[in-house]
């Protein structure tokens, strides 16, 4: 089963890379942007057939390694 996860910086954490991307986009003429935040995307192919078990395992991975909960949030966006 493939589980997809998105990891984003928490709201009150400064994202200087997002800011620079925002500036670059504006420089290219995209003027209607209020904010850009950069994150990470993971696809984990897990040897598990039951969705809940797969999600639980991946959640454990997020908590223990994939995300740093001081600065990041994780969200499992898909499991199939």
């Amino acid at each position: 089963m493939k589980v997809s996860i998105i990891i984003t910086l928490k709201k009150d954490v400064l994202d200087p890379q997002g800011k620079v991307i925002h500036q670059a986009l504006e420089g290219m003429g995209f003027n209607n942007i209020s904010e850009v935040r950069q994150g990470k995307y993971f696809e984990i192919d897990i040897k598990e057939t039951e969705t809940k078990r797969a999600k639980d395992k991946v959640e454990e991975m997020c908590k223990k390694l994939l995300a740093n909960l001081v600065i990041e949030n994780y969200e499992i966006i898909d499991a199939q």
Partner: peptide, 17 residues
């Protein structure tokens, strides 16, 4: 150390990149 949780906090990318 911050990643182990032995000391609190996190270290982010420098402000001016």
């Amino acid at each position: 150390l911050v990643e182990t949780g032995l000391v609190p906090g996190a270290l982010l990318r420098n402000k001016y990149l």
